[in-house]
Amino acid sequence: MSNTEVKTSRSMIKFVLTIFIIAILVALTYLLFFTPGEPTPVAQSVNEVAR
């Protein structure tokens, strides 16, 4: 491979890894700070509605 192809490949890998890391950080931020409190079990909710 020529020098240009090597630089291009490295740049594309850096770009993809950067996007992947940003996506992971956004997902972790959402899960840790923006998820609502205690969830109620679905089965329990269905049983209460049926009564």
Rank of each mutant, 00 (worst) to 15 (best):
M1D: 00
M1W: 00
M1V: 00
S2V: 03
S2C: 11
S2P: 02
S2W: 00
N3T: 03
N3P: 01
T4Y: 00
T4L: 00
T4D: 00
E5F: 02
E5I: 02
E5G: 02
E5K: 04
V6P: 01
V6A: 06
K7W: 04
K7Y: 08
K7I: 06
T8S: 02
T8C: 00
T8W: 00
S9I: 12
S9G: 08
S9K: 12
S9W: 07
R10M: 02
R10C: 01
R10V: 08
S11V: 03
S11T: 10
M12W: 07
M12S: 04
I13Q: 04
I13N: 03
I13H: 04
K14P: 03
K14H: 05
K14C: 08
V16M: 01
V16A: 08
V16W: 01
L17A: 01
L17H: 04
T18H: 13
T18M: 10
I19Q: 07
I19T: 10
I19K: 10
I19G: 05
I19S: 01
F20T: 14
F20S: 14
I21W: 08
I21S: 14
I21T: 13
I22M: 11
I22W: 08
A23W: 06
A23P: 03
A23L: 11
A23M: 07
A23K: 01
I24P: 05
I24S: 09
L25P: 02
L25S: 06
L25C: 04
V26W: 00
V26E: 01
V26C: 03
A27I: 10
A27C: 04
A27G: 13
L28S: 09
L28F: 09
T29A: 05
Y30R: 08
Y30T: 13
Y30W: 12
Y30G: 14
L31W: 06
L31Q: 13
L32M: 13
L32F: 10
L32Q: 11
L32P: 06
L32N: 12
L32V: 15
F33Y: 07
F33D: 04
F34P: 06
F34C: 06
F34K: 08
F34S: 05
F34M: 13
F34I: 09
T35I: 08
P36C: 08
P36G: 15
P36K: 15
P36A: 15
P36Q: 13
G37K: 13
G37I: 08
G37A: 14
G37S: 15
E38H: 11
E38W: 03
E38A: 15
E38N: 11
P39Y: 10
P39D: 04
P39L: 06
P39K: 08
P39F: 11
P39S: 05
T40E: 14
T40I: 15
T40P: 13
T40A: 15
T40D: 14
P41H: 06
P41F: 09
V42M: 13
V42D: 14
A43L: 12
A43C: 09
Q44G: 08
Q44Y: 03
Q44R: 06
S45C: 05
S45G: 09
V46S: 13
N47S: 15
N47W: 13
E48H: 02
E48Q: 09
E48D: 09
V49G: 08
R51C: 03
